[in-house]
Write a protein that binds this DNA or RNA. Structure first.
Lengths: 182, 182
DNA sequence: ACCTGAACACCGTTCAAGT
DNA sequence: ACCTGAACACCGTTCAAGT
């Protein structure tokens, strides 16, 4: 008659943190940051919104996880592209074109500064090889700043006075590299 | 006995669009974009939230007005600073330090691309004087991108590997100008 | 151990009713 | 002509109750 504790099986897990982050990343790329809604994420992973709080502290923490994951993908795109400053810059631009909302979220405003620091690591290494130990930090900051600014503005549609943006990108890159050599 | 239409005086205006935009700009600088709440703006200007909709279509339009006003101030800071590329860049940095939230809102994400185009106008003129007609558009894009990227990252606290940021700024500026000359 | 319905606070927005 | 209270939809979050 009495029901032993062991008979009440815990409900099985119906989702996972990885699935939740992936769903949020999908929503981001489809509809921008505002589309990352606890309700929308919950629907995608097949639970109700309150259940998400078992896996994630709050919405802000979820967005931070999405950003960290995007940073990993950006790093992969950069390192796949090559080892020179130009290679890495072009790899970052390719990522920005493929995942514009992820890139914008990463570099527009509220990203953890840890994440920003992490993604600039490859450029720091490449700068060391390119300009030597002395100025490598400032050289990396120069090219990182230009790259982030260029891609942010390109994605925002801020370059509207005509001209080919591929050309503008290569122009900027070559002038910066020339400046670093001089 | 009958009350003529003219006897029912229209209620006087208790606020104005300019006051509303100023209140929103204040809230922005104090607490970031999320602090721009229809309720908070209404309290500041002394009306109830629904009354704001007599003067502004919706919150998005209000934020757009705040951005346009910030763009005017940025333009003023740049033109006051001088006419060379270096002067203008330093003027923009000064504005970014004085009004960090306004600057971030302007260049992080959802700014009208009209606004971005407008603020790059002075740099376009200076680039014309500096590198001549041929490459001036691409030169302006180079320095604008670097400037926006540098200031965005500086304000986000993304430069954490030490070194003086004033020095890094001047380093970047001088290398870009050198690159443009070569 | 995980999941859910119900509830709460907060926000943007609309609208009929006041003056 | 402008202002307001009341109401609605939507969002994040908490929590007691279910299994």
């Amino acid at each position: 008659m009495s029901i032993a504790k062991e008979d009440r099986m815990p409900t099985p897990e119906r989702t996972s943190l990885a699935e939740i982050v992936a769903a949020a990343a999908d929503l981001l790329e489809t509809g921008g940051p505002a589309a990352i809604t606890m309700q929308a994420v919950a629907v995608r992973v097949g639970v109700k919104a309150p259940s998400l709080y078992k896996r994630v502290r709050d919405r802000e923490a979820l967005v931070a996880l999405v950003m960290a994951s995007a940073a990993d993908d950006l790093l992969a795109a950069m390192s796949t592209a090559g080892r020179t400053l130009a290679d890495i810059a072009r790899g970052a631009r390719r990522f920005a074109h493929e995942r514009p909302q992820s890139f914008r979220l990463l570099f527009s405003s509220e990203a953890d500064s840890d994440i920003l620091a992490r993604t600039s690591e490859p450029l720091l290494q490449a700068a060391r090889s390119s300009v030597g130990e002395a100025d490598h930090l400032e050289a990396a900051r120069l090219i990182t700043a230009w790259l982030v600014g260029f891609l942010t503005m390109e994605l925002a549609g801020a370059f509207r006075l005509g001209g080919d943006l591929d050309t503008a990108f290569e122009y900027g890159l070559s002038r910066i590299l020339a400046g670093l050599r001089s």
